[in-house]
Design a protein around this nucleic acid. Structure first.
Length: 203
DNA sequence: CCTACGATCTGCT
DNA sequence: GCAGATCGTAGGG
């Protein structure tokens, strides 16, 4: 797909610091190959969800159900769930089997398959509104809950390192969005985004 | 079985 | 800025 890209390997995902991984995913490229269509976008915004000790995480307090099961699996798989009955949200599962850490991908800047992305989003022209939100980018890349549990080392959904590096000084952190119910964990600075880009959901 | 609600987006005022 | 969409999940009876 892109000769300069190197697919992230299992070792990247299986490390135990989900907050660091969340920050490191900024600048990486999320790719899908679905129904013959290749699409990709550079990750510009993420949020870390810290397993059973995080009140905002679906696996809080060790909650283990058919929905949360994939979060307990090995790092490097997808955790995709339906939000508000409409939106398919995509997460990267991290850490070893039995932990339940994950990174929510919140925004991307499209870099490949622009026509396909515009079609899926029902738009004519590319602009930040096409992919600046967790429900928007899944629509753009054709990611749905039927792909929950997908191995990110396969050829359907994966993440590439294209050697585009950003210094820490251009990466901002903030509280996570839309988790007011999470008590003291609601204010933890586990959201990361590129400071100087329009391709994010909020300032 | 029943009810409440959500890691959001869109369109309208 | 705000309401409505829309349905799977979780929790309680």
């Amino acid at each position: 797909m892109n000769s300069s890209g190197v697919k992230l390997n299992r070792d990247f995902y299986e490390r135990d610091d989900v907050v660091s991984i969340s920050r490191q995913l900024i600048g990486k490229v999320l790719c899908t190959r679905i129904e013959g269509q290749c699409t990709a976008g550079m990750i510009t915004e993420t949020e870390a969800y810290c397993g059973r000790n995080d009140k905002a995480c679906h696996a809080n307090n060790g909650l283990r159900t058919s929905r949360t099961e994939t979060m307990y699996g090995a790092g490097g798989h997808s955790y995709i769930y339906l939000c508000y009955g409409i939106h398919h949200l995509f997460n990267v599962v991290t850490n070893r089997e039995d932990s339940a850490d994950a990174v929510l991908i919140r925004s991307i800047e499209p870099v490949e398959g622009i026509k396909t992305i515009l079609n899926r989003r029902n738009r004519i022209h590319m602009e930040p509104g096409v992919c600046n939100g967790p429900g928007k980018l899944t629509r753009a890349l054709a990611i749905t809950t039927s792909l929950d549990g997908t191995d990110l080392l396969g050829d359907c959904i994966w993440i590439e390192d294209r050697k585009k590096t950003f210094p820490d000084s251009v990466i901002a952190e903030s509280a996570r969005i839309g988790i007011d119910y999470a008590g003291d964990d609601a204010s933890r600075p586990w959201r990361f985004y590129l400071k100087d880009t329009p391709w994010i959901s909020r300032r």
